[in-house]
Amino acid sequence: MSEKKALLVIDYTNDFVAENGALNCGEPGRAIQPALLQHVHDFAANNDYVILPTDLHHLNDPYHPETKLFPPHNIEGTPGQELYDQLGVWYQEHQHEQNVWKYNKNRYSGFQNTDLDNFLRSRDIKDLYLTGVCTDICVLHTAIAAYNLNYRIHIYSDSVASFDQVGHEWALRHFKNSLGAEVL
C-alpha cells in the first residue's frame, strides 16, 4: 500500500481570484486554474486527498487583524467566499467523497485554529502538495506551519500565484531554501 498524500488548494475563491473579487490577485490567479485543476483531478483519481482550506471572515469583525489590513473579503455566506469557477464546479460534484475535505480557516495558515494537523496525522499523511493563492501570504504561512509540524512540503509552481510578482518569486525561493520544500 502506497503512502497517501494530500493536495492543499488554498483560498482559491471568487474574492481572491475572480476579476470582480474583493481582494483578487489578478490575472496570475486566474492563469493557474488549468494546472491547478489538473492536479486536483490527478489526486482525486489516485484516491489521494484533496483538501481545500478556505478563508472565511465576518463583516467588520473588530477583533480580526485582517479587518485593519485589507478590505472586506471572503465574508461568510457571500459569493466571494465560494470556490472559484471550475474548482467550484468540481467541488460540487465531489464534495461527498471521503478523500475531499473543505474547511473554513480564519488566519493565513491552513493549520492555525483548525483541525488540519489532526486530520492529516490520523490518516498518516506526511506529504503535502500546496497550490492556491497568494503564494507569499496564505500559501507561505501554511507551508511554514507544515514545516514546523515536520511535513514534507511540495509546491506546484504552476499552481500558485500572487498579486505581487516580487513576493511570489521570493516565496518560491523561500520554500526551497528555508523550508526544504520541493518546488515542482
Rank of each mutant, 00 (worst) to 15 (best):
C134W: 08
F119H: 10
L130P: 06
E82N: 03
N99T: 15
Y156N: 12
A145Y: 12
L149V: 06
L36I: 05
N20E: 08
T142D: 03
K105V: 01
N46W: 03
N60F: 15
I51R: 01
N104Q: 10
T67Y: 04
P72Q: 06
D48E: 14
T54D: 05
Q33C: 15
F43A: 07
H168K: 12
H94N: 13
K68W: 14
L87Y: 06
L149H: 08
E19S: 03
L52E: 00
V160N: 00
P53W: 07
N113H: 14
F175P: 02
L128A: 07
L36F: 06
I125V: 11
Q33K: 10
Y151P: 04
E66F: 02
L83T: 02
A31F: 09
M1R: 11
L184T: 13
T13K: 08
N104W: 03
P28I: 11
H57V: 03
F163V: 04
W170Y: 15
V40W: 03
G88H: 01
Y108N: 07
L7V: 00
D42A: 13
T142H: 07
L56R: 11
V89R: 08
G26P: 05
R30Q: 08
E66N: 05
P53H: 04
L149T: 01
T135G: 03
F119A: 10
P34K: 03
L83K: 08
G88P: 07
L179Y: 13
V139A: 05
K68N: 13
K102Q: 08
L179P: 06
Q33G: 12
I10W: 01
K176D: 14
S178Q: 15
Y103M: 00
T78V: 08
G88Q: 08
G167M: 11
Y156W: 10
C25K: 05
F163Y: 12
H94T: 02
E76Q: 14
N14Q: 04
D124I: 05
L36W: 05
W101A: 00
T135C: 12
V40E: 03
H64A: 14
A143F: 12
N99F: 04
F70T: 09
Y91M: 11
G26N: 12
R107S: 13
L37T: 02
W101V: 10
